[in-house]
Amino acid sequence: MTYLLLALKYWRECFIALLAFLILCLLMILNHKDEVIEKQKQEHIAYIQEQRQKYLEAAQQQQIEMNKVSADYEKLKAEQATKVEYVTRTINKYIDRPVYRNVCIDDDGRVQLNDLIKSSQTTSTDTK
């Protein structure tokens, strides 16, 4: 009973002590939540960096594949240009013959042209 009377006499101080205790508890809870949020931020940053690294590696791999396809195309283009040049020179050689001045292409020239047309058709169907 004496504690109760003592508490009633000093009710303001007891109320302040109770509020201080509650504030202390709330500060501890807030501190814990801040630590959890900071940990989640760090995990998120690590995840973003990992995804960025995967994206860069995929982009690099894609660039390598595109370079390879481009090199193959340039090689094919060079081969085709060589064939066209060869046929053009051969046809010019046939056309320059005195017998064929009035006729554009003889049988040899026609065979060369047909071979060139067939090779370009097979090349274009192969790439599709």
Rank of each mutant, 00 (worst) to 15 (best):
T2I: 14
Y3I: 15
L4R: 15
L4S: 15
L5T: 11
L5S: 15
L6R: 15
L6H: 15
L6K: 15
L8N: 12
L8A: 15
Y10C: 04
C14P: 01
F15L: 14
F15K: 10
A17D: 04
L18M: 10
L19M: 11
L19N: 06
F21Q: 04
I23D: 02
L24F: 06
C25N: 08
L26Y: 07
L26H: 06
L27S: 06
M28T: 04
I29A: 14
I29Y: 09
L30E: 08
L30D: 08
L30Q: 10
N31T: 09
H32I: 11
K33A: 11
K33L: 11
K33H: 12
D34K: 15
E35A: 15
E35V: 14
V36R: 15
I37Q: 11
E38Y: 12
E38P: 00
K39S: 13
E43T: 10
H44D: 07
H44C: 09
H44K: 14
A46C: 02
A46Y: 04
Y47C: 01
I48R: 05
Q49Y: 05
Q49A: 14
E50L: 00
Q51H: 00
R52S: 09
K54V: 01
K54L: 03
Y55A: 14
L56F: 07
E57I: 06
A59Y: 03
A59N: 08
Q60P: 01
Q61I: 00
Q63T: 07
Q63H: 06
I64Q: 07
I64E: 08
E65I: 02
E65D: 09
E65M: 03
M66V: 06
M66L: 10
N67M: 05
N67G: 07
K68M: 03
V69T: 04
S70T: 10
A71V: 05
A71Y: 04
Y73D: 01
K75F: 09
K77W: 02
K77E: 08
A78I: 02
A78P: 03
T82Y: 06
K83N: 13
K83C: 05
K83Q: 13
V84L: 14
V84W: 08
E85C: 05
Y86D: 02
Y86W: 07
V87P: 03
T88P: 01
R89F: 02
R89C: 00
I91F: 05
K93D: 12
K93F: 11
I95T: 03
D96P: 01
P98M: 01
P98I: 05
P98E: 03
Y100S: 07
R101A: 04
N102G: 01
C104L: 12
C104T: 09
C104V: 10
I105E: 06
I105S: 03
D106V: 07
D106S: 09
G109K: 00
V111K: 02
V111C: 02
V111L: 06
Q112F: 02
Q112R: 06
N114H: 07
D115S: 11
K118R: 12
K118A: 14
K118H: 11
S120W: 03
S120N: 12
T122E: 10
T122F: 14
T122Y: 11
T123H: 10
T123V: 11
S124T: 14
T125H: 09
T125F: 12
D126T: 08
D126A: 13
D126C: 07
T127Q: 08
T127R: 11
K128H: 07
